[in-house]
Design a protein around this nucleic acid. Sequence first.
DNA 1: CAAATATATGAACGAGTGTTCATATGTTCA
DNA 2: TGAACATATGAACACTCGTTCATATATTTG
Lengths: 105, 105
Amino acid sequence: MKRKVSITDDEAIELAEIFRLMGDASRLRIILAALARPICVSDIAAQTKLSPSLVSHHLRLLRSARVLRAERQGKQVFYVAADQHVRSVITDMVAHVGEEAHDFD
Amino acid sequence: MKRKVSITDDEAIELAEIFRLMGDASRLRIILAALARPICVSDIAAQTKLSPSLVSHHLRLLRSARVLRAERQGKQVFYVAADQHVRSVITDMVAHVGEEAHDFD
DNA sequence: CAAATATATGAACGAGTGTTCATATGTTCA
DNA sequence: TGAACATATGAACACTCGTTCATATATTTG
């Protein structure tokens, strides 16, 4: 079963933007923290050992790119992976890194 | 069926590096060009409208990160997606972008 | 309302990155 | 071997991006 991989230039830019956001270690760890279930900002900061301010900056980017979605519950705001695609992409790549042969170039 | 999503810090950095490489529009278009079948450098340059030099620079990065793999055939060098994980990640994200609701923030 | 907690925003700086241009290396064929 | 083609490499520059610190907004509770 073949899939369509050709996309427009605008879609390529939007795609690249999402990958770019995943391409920072801090942000990736934030995404991983919010991958399975909603988690609030302070817990993300604690788990990733990043400052709440920095986490918030990154969360804003991840939210506008629709990688994560947010929901306020009282004083706290919970973030979680936007959809199954995001989860699949991350788990696929975790598998990719895990299975690599790591032979010479 | 649950999957493991927790990874070590080193793996997170390696993962982020791969995503970072996908997070540039030029490189992403290069990856897309080499996603389905091997394609030589000059054809990539023609298809993406990027200079051969720039394409070569990017290909070196994509090759060392094992996103693409290379094979020389005479004067030409053909590049193709390293494995099924890379293809899956891209097609998943294409689907993600394609299906998004695009409602307000 | 005031205090306390949780999250968000803005400015600024240092480090890293994509691109270009010039040049080098590799490969084939006459 | 030498010319022609294909790809790769190195240096340099303009620009972007992650981070920090200070400050602002939002929400709950006394």
